[in-house]
């Protein structure tokens, strides 16, 4: 079990010395994750808003579909995205395979249901008096939308954090459509998979701790922002 202790020290060395391979994997992880979280927020927040705020026919069915999408396995998403982005696939012409945007496409599919479902349930549990109060204070429809969104900002940030956690820790998509290409699409998780595959357990644990450290930094900065 020496490699657990080893891994801990290796993690410190990697972080303090700024090992270029590790930094590249960190940068790739963050780029792919922020791109996918951003797209998911742009698409998922309005979708979740509609799903949680308005009453319409088929709302229940839509919720069931979104909740089911939460269970999508990452390797399956990876396979699906590969099938579309492969040069033999319908979107092969975009030349996205084995690039960070390709990883982000897959991660967006992963994050979108999380953000949609969590935004919807935040709005679901929203006090009905908010709408009433805003209209009675003279809000028009646009002001109503933005103020409501602002009122649930912590809920949306929490949704983004949850999705971020899911996206940064997935390995199936990054491996399948990113290809784990050194200096380009090697994320922290695919690097862990690679190191483990090579039997370099200490390196794997070090990288895992690096990922954990990033999560810590992100969460601390969010809690500062909330204050």
């Amino acid at each position: 079990m020496d490699f657990i202790v080893d891994g801990f020290f290796r993690a410190l060395v990697l972080l303090i010395h700024g090992d270029p391979q590790t930094l590249s994997a960190v940068a790739t992880t963050l780029k792919a994750a922020s791109l996918s979280i951003g797209i998911s927020l742009i698409m998922g927040v309005p979708a979740g808003f509609c799903l949680g705020y308005y009453e319409f026919r088929g709302k229940k069915t839509a919720r069931i579909i979104v909740d089911t999408m939460l269970a999508l396995p990452t390797v399956f998403i990876g396979l699906l995205v590969y099938a579309f982005l492969s040069n033999r696939g319908p979107l092969g012409g975009w030349g996205l395979l084995f690039t960070i945007p390709a990883i982000s496409v897959g991660q967006t599919i992963l994050a979108l249901p999380v953000i949609t479902a969590l935004t919807a349930s935040t709005l679901d549990s929203l006090d009905q008096d908010l709408r009433l109060t805003l209209i009675s204070l003279g809000a028009n429809k646009r002001q109503l939308f933005f103020t409501t969104l602002w009122e649930v900002r912590y809920g949306i940030v929490a949704a983004a954090m949850t999705a971020m956690g899911r996206v940064m820790t997935e390995v199936g998509i990054s491996m399948m459509v990113g290809g784990n290409i050194k200096w380009h699409t090697r994320t922290i998780t695919t690097a862990i998979a690679l190191e483990t595959g090579k039997g370099m357990f200490a390196e794997g644990i070090a990288l895992g701790l690096v990922l954990l450290a990033i999560a810590l930094v992100v969460n601390v900065s969010v809690s500062v922002f909330r204050r």
Partner: peptide, 17 residues
């Protein structure tokens, strides 16, 4: 806040391509 999010996105998209 919204403009900030958009700016991050655009820069990441450019960097990635």
């Amino acid at each position: 806040f919204m403009v900030g999010i958009l700016a991050v996105l655009v820069s990441v998209a450019v960097a990635g391509s």
